[in-house]
């Protein structure tokens, strides 16, 4: 009897040991998946995009905006509004370490923006300033593997300690074949799903994957913003000088 108990305990310990190793492997896999997803979306050395934004309200009425977006690596982004007339020239610069600037042509002034604006809507769209930042998700979030579903890895992302974000949790869908992020569900601090981002028309341009269309749905207001890439230039050796206050008002 004693031997049976000893063997049972031994087997239990062995099982627990392998279970913990398996869990660690899943954790590692989630980190790897997110790392690969970050690598894929930030693969081009730089991106020079002309984007059409379509704002659709709950009645289906549409408003159109145009902007240019310049990104280098995964942490520098410059966005400039081209239309409509009352927003033309408004420019937003996102730099590492949460440094953000906004240029308002009407005031001829560059304004430093604090992180409290991150959760506010960017120029009336459903994207917030935080969504418009250039980031690597793995720098801000801890991933956890949920499951494989419909040829996608499903990850749950929770913010790392000390990270300022309004999102309590993200559920991310990553394609199995190319690690492209196709969908992100955004949860607020009350753990309620309130925004969904969907990437569509994913195509390969040269050696890089790119979603020609993205959509952000605000579930509460039933408002949607579609982001359509109309022109794209990748790896065009954009200078670091473009991501400066000097260039923000040009």
């Amino acid at each position: 009897m004693k031997k049976i108990i000893q063997r049972s305990l031994f087997l239990l310990l062995i099982s627990l040991f392998f279970a913990s190793l398996w869990a660690e492997e899943i954790q590692l896999t989630a980190v790897q998946i997110l790392g690969k997803a970050d690598d894929v979306i930030n693969a081009p050395q730089d991106q020079d995009l002309k984007i059409k934004l379509i704002l659709i309200d709950k009645k289906g009425k549409e408003k159109v905006r145009e902007m240019s977006m310049l990104q280098k690596g995964s942490d520098k982004r410059l966005v400039k509004f081209l239309s409509p007339a009352d927003q033309k020239g408004i420019a937003f610069l996102s730099l590492p370490d949460d440094v953000m600037y906004l240029y308002m042509p009407a005031f001829k002034k560059i304004r430093r923006i604090a992180s409290h604006v991150k959760n506010t809507k960017f120029a009336g769209t459903d994207f917030t300033y935080e969504d418009m930042e250039a980031v690597r998700y793995s720098d801000k979030y801890i991933p956890e593997f949920i499951e494989k579903k419909d040829n996608h890895f499903l990850l749950q992302l929770t913010p790392k300690e000390g990270i300022k974000t309004d999102y309590a949790k993200l559920i991310m869908w990553v394609r199995e074949d190319n690690f492209y992020i196709t969908k992100i569900e955004h949860y607020n601090r009350g753990d309620k799903l309130f925004k969904i981002m969907i990437r569509d028309k994913i195509e390969k341009i040269g050696e890089y994957w790119l979603a020609r269309e993205s959509e952000m749905q605000d579930l509460k207001s039933k408002h949607t913003t579609k982001m359509i890439i109309e022109e794209v230039k990748l790896d065009s050796e954009v200078s670091d000088d473009k991501f400066t206050k000097r260039n923000l008002e040009k």
């Binding site: 430093r112 604090a114 409290h116």
Partner: peptide, 11 residues
């Protein structure tokens, strides 16, 4: 000067 104290923008 301009910057932030926590989440608050200051100048």
């Amino acid at each position: 000067l301009a910057g932030a104290l926590g989440n608050i923008g200051i100048w």
